[in-house]
Structure formats: structure tokens, C-alpha cells
Design a protein around this nucleic acid. Structure first.
Lengths: 218, 218
DNA sequence: AAAGTTTCGTTAGAAGCTATCACGAAACCT
DNA sequence: AGGTTTCGTGATAGCTTCTAACGAAACTTT
């Protein structure tokens, strides 16, 4: 998961229990969502009693924060693996959608309604930058130099969100548009807003992606 | 709010208390979000004790369902008022963003992470269709007949989501794209994903809207 | 190997929440 | 004025997070 290499056997055991707790937490999140995550229920399923978990996590908020961090890590790895397999921007889009459909509640944990008691550690913004970097790698080849919209200049000015990735302004703009548009259709699909409408989310996603790729590139 | 006209004074009083409860609930939601909504806290602020509220709402879920219904009603009214004032699609976009920024937690209550114990009543889908109808009114004039993409045909097939609005397929496609794209940027902005990036959400929103309007119309 | 120290898991408890029940009191209708 | 409905209350069960105190197990040091 994350912290595996340990010096003392104590830390080794501690890390093992931590990941076991997180596994149960993910299972619970996938079932009923993050709002229904209960330390007590996790303890019960682990055959251990209530407050024992507080030796491993300061509280519910710290556990959720850790889960969010692992979630970002999982997404970043998934996208990077897809890119390594030669996926273009379209391939990344489908990798993203596949990852989201795999566990909708996990997607909402990262990109849905913010969790009240949670404040993002610097760690996650770094992983987020990593995600943006793989996006930008795929965008770099697709854009023409040409337009240079006024907003692209603003994006170039603060390119810290992409880890100072050396991409042309048009690529920055494309990556940002990719993110917001894919998130738009995906989050509405996962929330079930299309089921009542009898609309096929896959077709809508494909159409939105197609429209995004048509204007730029080619 | 909703149920104002009452026959008997009993029903009048009942309706008044219900709206008072909802007002406190909105206040609480605007402060700490829907997940922190507590019937007990509402009762305490109303100077009444605990279970008294169960005379007016069957439970937390019914209250939240009612709030969601009122939220949709509020958004539909806001957009319709803007349209009546002569707002075009761009105007509707800014009306939507203004409404969302006015109370971010309200937006997330409608379009964010789905609430576990809640199932949308038929009522809200009707209001949702009303929202789509005002969107389609603004889209009808902007589109050329031309393209007729394969996805637009699918949208035309099930046009129930727009209340069977008599708009050309291209307009249906534009309205759907408008919805998903505006939601994409808005939800990420409201969740605070841009603040860490030093990106101006207003400029991103404007750029996304501009891009949406440029390809169609003109 | 024995003693000391740290860490673990337990039970007990405070404070909060949703929700149900039974009862007295107020308001309404006849 | 009397009968019925509705309201608000306190009590109670069961759930939650989280703190505190204690015994036992495990690791470290002598």
C-alpha cells in the first residue's frame, strides 16, 4: 500500500494493521459511501473492540485523509500505467472512466462534495500535479502553436499545478479542459443523474471526448 | 416556500413550523454542509426539544429530500427569471454560477455526492425537466441544422429529460453539453480544487463557456 | 536471563446523534 | 361545555466518535 519497509518488527506490525484497517474502510466506502464510514463497524469486522483503532489513527478524519491520499495515488498509478502502455489522450480518458466506475464512491471521495473535517495535506497536491503531468504528456503532441487564448496566458503564469511541466500554453489549456469536461460527465453519471433520463452515459462520455479532441489537434 | 395556502389554522401552523425548520436547516447546511445537518441541533436552536420535530418530518431523510426539492425549485426559478429578463445562454451560465456561489453547499446537495438514504421523488425530475426546458429555449436559436451527430440522434430518441421540448437534435446536444461542462468547472471550483492551483475560477469558467459557444452558433 | 519500559487492547464513560414510545397538556371542532 | 385530535415533553434504546484508566503482552536494556 504505502509504508511497507519497516525497521523494527513493531513498526512492521503497526503498518500491517494500518493497511488492514484501510482495506476494511475501502470495502465499507465502496458499499455505502464515505459518509457511512464508521470506525466502530471496522473494529467490529476486525474482531477487535472500538477504541483499539485509535492507536493507529488519531480519528475518523485522519483515516479519511489517508484514504484520500491513497485514492489519488491509485488514480495517478492507473493513468501512468495507461500512458506507459501507449495510451493517447483518448485512452487516458477511458482509463479514467474505468477507474471511476470501478468504485464510484472512491471517485466521489476525491472529487465529490468536500468532506467537512478534512484539509488536504501537501502530499496530495503533489500527486495531483503528477496526474496533471501525465495528462500534459499526452496533450503536448496534440496542440498547434496557433491560438494562444487570453486564458492560456493565465494558465502559463501559474503552471505550478502541473509541476512546472514544460508544455506550450495551448497544451495547458487542453489538459485543464480535459479535466473539467471529463469530470463533468463522469460525476453526473456516477451520481445517477442520467439514469432517470434514459440517456446512455457511455455515449455521452464518448461524444464529449470526441468533441474535445476534434477542435484541437488534426 | 411551498405549501402556504392552508384551509384550517392547524394546517397553517403546521406549514409555518415546517418552513421554519427548513430555514434553520438551510442555515445549518450553508455553514457546515448537508452531512452535518442535525435534527437535534435544529430543535435546540428553535427552543424546542428533540423529538418534537418528528411531528413535522418523518426523519432526517425526509427533511433532506424536501430540501433537495426546494433547492431544485430555487434553481429553476432563478434560471427562468434570468431567461425572462432576456438572458441568452451566456447569461444563463452566469446566473447558474451566481446561484451556485451564493450557497455552495446547496449546489452540492443537488449535484454533489449522492446522499445515501435518499431516493429522488418524481417531483424533482419534473423540476429538472423544467430547468432543461429553459436551457433548451436559449439553445434553440443558436444552433445550425447541419451536423446531426450520431449522439444527437440518441438524445432525440429519449427526449423525455427535456419534457419533450420541441427542439432540434443539435439544440438537445448543446444543452446537454452546456450542463455537463458548466457543472464540471463549477463543481471543481466549489470544491476548492482550483485554489491550491492558483487558478482564477472565473476566468476558467468564462473560457469554458466561450469555447462552448464558439463552435456552435456564430 | 531478569528487570524495566513502551505499546497494545480492553472496559468504562462522556457527549452527541437518530428515532420510538407513552403521557399530559393545549388547541380545535362539535 | 365536552370530546377528539394534535402537539410537545421526558424517558429510553441504539448508534456514533473519542478520552481515560488499567492490565497484559511485547520489546529493550542491563
Amino acid at each position: 500500500m504505502g509504508e511497507s519497509n519497516a525497521a523494527t518488527p513493531r513498526e512492521r506490525y503497526r503498518a500491517q494493521v494500518r493497511t488492514e484497517i484501510k482495506e476494511h474502510a475501502w470495502e465499507q466506502i465502496a458499499t455505502a459511501g464515505a459518509s457511512a464510514l464508521s470506525l466502530n463497524a471496522i473494529a467490529k469486522r476486525m474482531g477487535v473492540s472500538g477504541p483499539a483503532l485509535y492507536r493507529y489513527f488519531a480519528g475518523r478524519d485522519e483515516l479519511i485523509t489517508e484514504l484520500i491520499r491513497d485514492g489519488y495515488r491509485s488514480l495517478a498509478d492507473t493513468l501512468r500505467a495507461a500512458a506507459a502502455d501507449g495510451a493517447d489522450l483518448s485512452g487516458l480518458a477511458h482509463a479514467l472512466r474505468g477507474w471511476a466506475l470501478e468504485d464510484p464512491h472512491r471517485y466521489f471521495l476525491l472529487y465529490g462534495t468536500p468532506v467537512p473535517g478534512y484539509h488536504a495535506p501537501d502530499d496530495t497536491t503533489a500527486i495531483s500535479s503528477e496526474i496533471m503531468a501525465t495528462l500534459l504528456d499526452a496533450c503536448a503532441g496534440l496542440t498547434q502553436e496557433a491560438p494562444a487564448a487570453p486564458f492560456a496566458a493565465h494558465l502559463e503564469e501559474h503552471r505550478g499545478w502541473a509541476g512546472d511541466h514544460p508544455a506550450p500554453p495551448a497544451a495547458l489549456h487542453l489538459a485543464m479542459s480535459f479535466w473539467t469536461r471529463m469530470h463533468g460527465v463522469l460525476s453526473l453519471e456516477l451520481a445517477g443523474h442520467f439514469t432517470g433520463m434514459r440517456i446512455d452515459p457511455a455515449q455521452l462520455f464518448a461524444a464529449e471526448l470526441d468533441d474535445l479532441l476534434r477542435q484541437r489537434s488534426a
